[in-house]
């Protein structure tokens, strides 16, 4: 376990370093943020002064080394746009994204696994077929369009739910959260469902395939022969054995949902980090983009680690020490 952790850690440092270099050069190649941020009325002298003020007149390698230097002390730079530390900007908005991400993955699990198992147990029934064709829709419809349709239906036509924004928040341990207020909950529902749709379909398909395969295994026959109740066979023996692929995929998807909920956050004007990222890319706010992607990589590394640990919990045959990476 210890060797495994150390090896993982060293790999992560290299990945982070390479990532920062790529993003740094990438954004430098796209353009100069001052071209977009400055008031067009500024004359040539003022344009040059602004570029100097933000340190953008220095050669790229010199900018990168000062970035690396302060990064070693935990400072990932100050946003060109907001003049606030990039990490602070991200952490300010992280709770909002975590809320819909966890909500979305929660919905995917709560609806997806049972639906997938039903479809797996009764593949030829009407309900099984309905679930499977529904999941195709979830796969193939673009999030952007579904989001707008959800808004049109539930907010504009029916008027049941708000169309955008985060609603009331309350502080939980100093972090503003909205899932504890009714108003906040109504705001979460649509974006979380919109985000969940794709994952739900994924989980349904995985659970169905898993269920169909596991049902034919000897241990299922054996437990039936032992006289166990049908509910125990399905809810314990089958469920546990279909979970491994589901956990792998959900782990990666959780990371995806946190880091790249951009479309949903934009459509629902949800003040999360995805929207921050897309705005920052648009304005070439390099410190924020670099900090964001470094954070994202760290998060994926962590999630993968947790997924590996979960494997060994779910499947006693897996030993962490034996895993290559």
């Amino acid at each position: 376990m210890l060797v495994f952790t150390i090896r993982r850690l060293m790999q992560s440092v290299i990945v982070l370093f390479v990532m920062s270099l790529i993003v740094f050069i990438g954004i430098y190649a796209v353009g100069n943020p001052v071209d977009i941020l400055i008031n067009p009325e500024a004359d040539i002298a003022e344009q040059e002064a602004t570029i100097r003020r933000l340190g953008l007149d220095r050669p790229l390698w010199s900018q990168y080394f000062s970035f690396l230097n302060s990064a070693l002390y935990g400072d990932l730079g100050t946003s060109f746009v907001h003049n606030e530390p990039a990490l602070e900007l991200i952490f300010e908005r992280l709770p909002a994204t975590l809320e819909i991400a966890v909500g979305a993955v929660g919905l995917a699990i709560v609806i997806g696994i049972p639906a997938g198992m039903v479809a797996g147990l009764r593949p030829d029934s009407l309900i099984g077929k309905t679930i499977m064709s529904g999941s195709i829709l979830g796969f193939s419809l673009p999030t952007f369009w579904v989001g707008l349709m959800l808004i049109m239906l539930f907010a504009v036509m029916l008027g049941w739910l708000p169309a955008s924004g985060r609603g009331d928040t309350v502080d939980l341990f100093g972090v503003p959260v909205s899932f504890l207020t009714w108003d906040g909950l109504t705001h979460i529902l649509l974006p979380a469902f919109n985000l969940a749709l794709f994952k739900m379909s994924l989980v349904i398909r995985l659970s169905r395939a898993g269920t169909r395969e596991v049902m034919l295994q000897d241990y299922v026959k054996f437990s039936r022969a032992k006289g166990l109740s049908e509910s125990r066979v399905i809810l314990v023996h089958v469920l546990k054995n279909i979970l491994i692929p589901v956990v792998t995929v959900l782990g990666l998807e959780l990371g995806n949902v946190i880091a790249f909920a951009v479309v949903t956050e934009t459509v629902f004007a949800w003040p999360g980090i995805g929207k921050l990222l897309i705005d920052s890319i648009g304005l070439l706010d390099r410190p924020v983009v670099v900090a964001y992607l470094l954070l994202t990589v760290t998060m994926f590394i962590l999630i993968n680690f947790v997924v590996d640990v979960l494997y060994s919990v779910l499947d006693p045959r897996v030993r962490l020490g034996d895993m290559k990476s």
């Binding site: 808004i151 049109m152 907010a155 008027g159 708000p162 169309a163 924004g165 934009t266 004007a269 705005d279």
Partner: peptide
């Protein structure tokens, strides 16, 4: 004042009374 940068979402928010 709410920033709703996506134009379609902005119109939807108005139509929904948000």
């Amino acid at each position: 004042v709410k920033p709703i940068t996506n134009a379609a979402a902005r119109v939807a928010a108005l139509l929904a009374g948000d």
